[in-house]
Design a protein around this nucleic acid. Structure first.
Lengths: 184, 184
DNA sequence: CGGCTACGTTCGTCAAACCGAACAACCCGA
DNA sequence: TCGGGTTGTTCGGTTTGACGAACGTAGCCG
């Protein structure tokens, strides 16, 4: 029920992890959160006991819910083309739902909207071990997937692949997509 | 994703609410948490800005998870319009990601693609308690949300609302959407 | 090389969170 | 009408979290 662990170490680790996930420096995060660099440095090192307002502003600056900062952290490519996949709740013709991926407990899933402009492929470094990406192309055309196993997606297409290996995003035209990043 | 509300008032209300629910006096709670009565009194009155350790000890003494003291009591309808929301990883101009909802452990999230044809609103019964729906309109126009609190979405718009109350889906034109159904 | 910028850390100072005690208000029994 | 027991609040004093300015380091460019 309650986390018995001392929260300070968890907060310190969470701050570092989330900051690196956002890809910003300590100074940049301190600036966005309106804090002094020294304060943030001490927090990430496990020294100190932040006030609620301090930690709150960090959560806002990181775009992360407050609870993420205090709670302990608890390869195959599969494509489902638009119109394929198991249809559910189709008893009403005006309505069709396709189950793309069923969730399991103990994993966290972050929901993103991605906007991509045509360019050379963007390389993404491997995320934490065990992470999985779920990718639904909403508009445009996108090539994505692990390096060497990219697939091309059109509107409504879905692909899932491991997130803990290097992978690419490449928009063939202005595109956007919904991404669910699943990790432990 | 983040609560824009000032957390101090929420904490003050949550402390008083949980303490009265536990049926103990302010002095008794202060004693169990190892704090001074004065400290707790100021916290419940909304004055002051507790440290993490202080609030943590109160959560332990009350027997409630930490997050209950900092998060607003109920999940409401929240809309993030296309282009709004915290942008991440925007250092490369060809690439923009918007965090819509950050996941927490211990919940399951099922990922759907919904196709809807224009019709009268489709009523959906309440799901299991604690379920939350995340809805991203991919194309068309969709009105959805809890009954009486529907919002209209265009491509790229995002809305989240409780899934454990009756809610509606209504396509104003042929539409499709990505739905993440989150439940415990 | 020197100059510049950004990174993260350590230091001294100040405001504030926290404490302890004293405080008014209330309820009960003597 | 006294105590003695609550309740929750307000008052000085001390500890400490947050700040700003330094620091050492690393990279990049002229």
């Amino acid at each position: 029920m309650q986390q018995p662990a001392p929260p300070l170490a968890i907060i310190a680790a969470a701050l570092r992890r989330e900051r690196q996930r956002a890809g910003i420096s300590l100074a940049e995060l301190a600036r966005r959160a309106g804090l002094a660099k020294s304060t943030l440095s001490q927090l990430e090192s496990g020294t100190g006991n932040p006030s609620i307002e301090t930690l709150w502003s960090l959560g806002v600056a990181l775009g992360v819910p407050f609870s993420r900062l205090v709670e302990p952290p608890t390869t195959q490519v599969r494509v489902i083309r638009a119109g394929e996949g198991p249809r559910l709740m189709s008893d009403e013709s005006v309505y069709a739902a396709t189950l793309l991926a069923a969730g399991s407990a103990r994993t966290r899933r972050d929901l993103y909207v991605l906007e991509l402009e045509p360019s050379s492929p963007r390389e993404a470094d491997a995320h934490l071990p065990g992470s999985v990406e779920h990718f639904v192309c909403a508009a445009g055309r996108i090539r994505t997937g692990p390096v060497g196993e990219e697939v091309e997606l059109g509107p409504g297409d879905y692909v899932t692949f491991p997130g803990d290996v290097p992978h690419r995003y490449e928009a063939l035209e202005p595109s956007w997509a919904v991404l669910v990043l699943e990790h432990v």
